[in-house]
Nucleic acid binder design. Structure first.
Lengths: 124, 124
DNA sequence: CCAAAAATGAAAATGGTTGTCATTAACATT
DNA sequence: AATGTTAATGACAACCATTTTCATTTTTGG
């Protein structure tokens, strides 16, 4: 069975509290705010382990910063407002199927996909 | 009409030569290799201007580095091998239509999409 | 030709992320 | 409890893409 250390557990529960995506820096600040003396390095290391164990997913914000979220929730994508940051979760089974088909067609294995939509919401 | 300076023109033709995506650093190296004394700062500035003018597109590599390409070529996506970097261009009109529909459904305007597939090719 | 504006590049600053390394916590074995 | 072994930790420095600063050069319009 996979071992799971204290830091990893703290990060998982913080990600649960957040409910969606959070950057390493944000997670670090949240933990510090709770009086936790955790170091930034440890946050990065724990996130990397969780990635290796496929407990969390990662995606990139438009500015390149890495965002992490818990896997397990139904896989979905996001429609993000470029201006105010409003995020709508969208389901996209048709995209999943398309990605699968493309992967098979080109004999690729272990294919993951990044699908993110960026635009301007009705208010902006 | 939009002005276009020397550096921007150099970058456009370099991007044409490359034919696909290239990072700012790669473009810089290519130009230097051609004996061009251009500075890295200028490369970044020119790319930013071309982005503003919607002459080039940007996407993020898995490690967060920004990749630029000329717009105008038929819009397509990529299937990239995580291990050896082999890239297959894929066409995805079904994805385009899906993105359009989602955008409309949520009253978003000017919606662009990032769709990239990462996996392991048959050789790796 | 000249002055104002735009462009340039070297160098420093920024900010997210990763590497180093000495210290500490956890845990199994006497 | 005392010991030795191993994993985990965090302060700090290193890294690297990108941005900012600023003094200098080039371009442009009059």
């Amino acid at each position: 069975m996979r071992t799971m250390n204290k830091s990893q557990i703290k990060l998982i529960s913080t990600l649960e509290r957040v409910g969606g995506f959070a950057s390493a820096q944000e997670l670090y600040q949240l933990l510090r705010r709770d009086g936790d003396g955790i170091g930034l390095t440890t946050v990065y290391r724990a996130l990397q382990s969780l990635l290796d164990d496929k407990i969390v997913d990662v995606l990139r914000r438009e500015d390149g910063e890495a965002l992490y979220r818990l896997c397990g929730e139904a896989h979905h994508h996001h429609l993000v407002c470029r201006s105010c940051g409003t995020t709508v979760e969208i389901e996209g089974s048709s995209v999943e199927r398309w990605a699968e088909a493309v992967a098979k067609e080109h004999y690729f294995r272990e294919v993951g996909h990044t699908v993110e939509l960026f635009g301007l919401c009705s208010k902006c």
